[in-house]
Design a protein around this nucleic acid. Structure first.
Length: 130
RNA sequence: UGAGCAGGCUACCUUAUCGCUCCAACUAAUCUUGGGGAGGAAAGUCCGGACACCAUAGUGCAGCAUAGCGGGUAACUCCCGUCAUUUCAUUUUAAAUGGAAUAGGACAAGUGCAACAGAAAGAAUGUACAGGUUAAGCUGUAGUGAAACCAGGUAAACUCUAUGUGGUGCAACGUCAUGUAAAUCGGUGUUUGAGGGUUGCACGCCCAAACCGAAGGGUAGGCGGUUAGAUUUUGUCAGUAAUGACAAAACCAGAUAAAUGAUAAGGGAGCUCCUUGGAGCUUUACAGAAUCCGGCUUAUUGGCCUGCUUAUUUU
RNA sequence: GGGUUAUUAGCUCAGUUGGUUUAGAGCGCUGCCUUGACAGGGCAAAGGUCACUGGUUCGAAUCCAGUAUAACCCA
C-alpha cells in the first residue's frame, strides 16, 4: 500500500452477507454522532486489509434520494481518510458505518465525524508506533 | 404591458483535481488510453402488452372485466373525432357560441328495493275545490315526497344482452460450481380406480407399487435471461385529429449490500441592499433506473412558447 | 423488483356483502354510591371529521375511484 491511496475499489467493499451477519453478531461498535462504526476482526478474501460498507436506516431518512446522498457522503469521507487506518494498524477488519442522524448533513460535517471515529478506532484497537 | 384559464417544451453550463461503474483496445496485471453513465415522473403498481414456465394448463357452466357511435394502436379501464345528457361563462325572448364532466347497452324478460312524510311507492286512484256525465278517477288544480296521468324510479341492486378472459410472474426461467439420507425429480410401467390434487362445480387430467437412472435439503455463489428496441432524431407525404407510411442518420445507463460522487474556480440566472455600478446570499421543486415497452394517476420549482378571455395605454 | 391485506372511541374488536329511522361491545378514563380506608362490586356520564379526497344516490362507515399510512409473503 502506498502512503496516500485514495482509491476505493470493489474488493474493498464489504459484500458478503455472511460476514455482515457475523459482524452484527460478534463485532464491536464505536459511536460518534451521527455515525456509528461496527468493526470485526476476521480473515478477508484476496488478502485485502479492510472491507467497508455504509448503511442508512429507512426509518430515519425516508427519501431514497437523501439516503443515497448520505451514503455517498460517508463513502467519500471514508475514501479520503482511510489511509490513517491503513498505515497504522495490524490485522484485517470488516467495517460497517451506520448513519444515526435524521437530518441531511453536508460534506464537511460528515468528513469531520469520519476522521474522529477513525481516530477512536485506532485508540481502541491499538496504534502501531511510528 | 398586467391578470386569469388551457395546452406544450425544458430541467443551469464550462474547466481543473481526487474517485466509482460499464464497454472497447493494449497487456503478466485490478495498470494505461479512448468512449458511455438517472427521470418527466425513474414513483404509485391502477390498466394493457412483449417474454418465460406450468395439462394442477383441456372442455362446459359459473365467476371476472368492459359498455353511445366511428376511428387509432401490438394491446388497453388509453388516445382522437363525433352525438346525447348535465353543468359553467358570454350575448340573451327563444336560442346560439365556447369550456368542463359523464361507469351514457337494457327496468317493453323476470326478481328485489324506496326511511320519514303521504290516501297511495304499485296492476294504486282517496280528500277538497272546479268542470263534466245516465253513471264512473272521466278531466284539471291543491297537498306529501328525491320520485305520484305512467306501458313510473332505481342496474357504482340481483339480473339480461354483446364482446373478451387459464394461472404465475425476471425473486419467471435456463445453466455451471459445491455435493450428502428411506426425502425429491425423470424414464419404463400394471391392478383397483379407493383416496388426494385443481379459484367453485361436472367431465377430463395428474399423483401413489416396483425397477432403472439422476442428483435433492441446505447455502445465497458465478454466468445467461439483460439491454438494438412497437428505439431515437430530422424531413416529406396521407389524415379534421389521434396516428400511420416512406427516406436518411444515430447507438443513447446496465448496477447487483446495488455505480452515476466530492471539492475548488469562472460564467449565467434569481433574491436582498443600493446612486450609475457594486456587495452579499442561493444555485434550488418533486425526486434516484433494477426484465423491457405503451398509457393512466399522483408529487412539483423556475423559465420559455402558443391559444383564448379581460383591463389599461397609444394610433 | 413483484405479489397481497388492513385502517371504526385512549386500547382490542363488532357492524360493511344486504344503504336511510341510534355506529355498538369489552377494557380503560371521569363522577357518584357501598367501606373507617383500599381492593372488588353497583350506577351514571364523557369520549367518533368511521384514515383522507372526490363520485354514484333522495340519502354513504357501507357501493365505486384515487391518495396516504401500516403490515405481510417470495430467493
Amino acid at each position: 500500500m502506498s502512503q496516500k491511496d485514495f482509491k476505493y475499489p470493489r474488493t474493498e467493499k464489504l459484500k458478503s452477507k455472511k460476514l455482515i451477519e457475523e459482524l452484527f453478531a460478534n463485532g464491536r461498535s464505536i459511536t460518534n454522532f451521527p455515525i456509528k462504526l461496527f468493526y470485526y476482526k476476521t480473515a478477508l478474501p484476496k488478502n485485502v486489509k479492510f472491507q467497508a460498507t455504509v448503511a442508512v436506516s429507512k426509518r430515519n431518512i425516508k427519501s431514497a434520494v437523501e439516503r443515497n446522498r448520505v451514503k455517498r457522503l460517508m463513502r467519500e469521507g471514508y475514501r479520503l481518510n482511510k489511509h490513517q487506518v491503513f498505515n497504522n494498524s495490524e490485522g484485517s477488519f470488516a467495517f460497517l458505518f451506520l448513519y444515526l442522524g435524521k437530518k441531511m448533513p453536508n460534506f464537511k460535517e460528515t468528513e469531520h465525524a469520519m476522521k474522529k471515529i477513525l481516530v477512536k478506532f485506532l485508540d481502541a484497537e491499538g496504534r502501531i508506533k511510528g
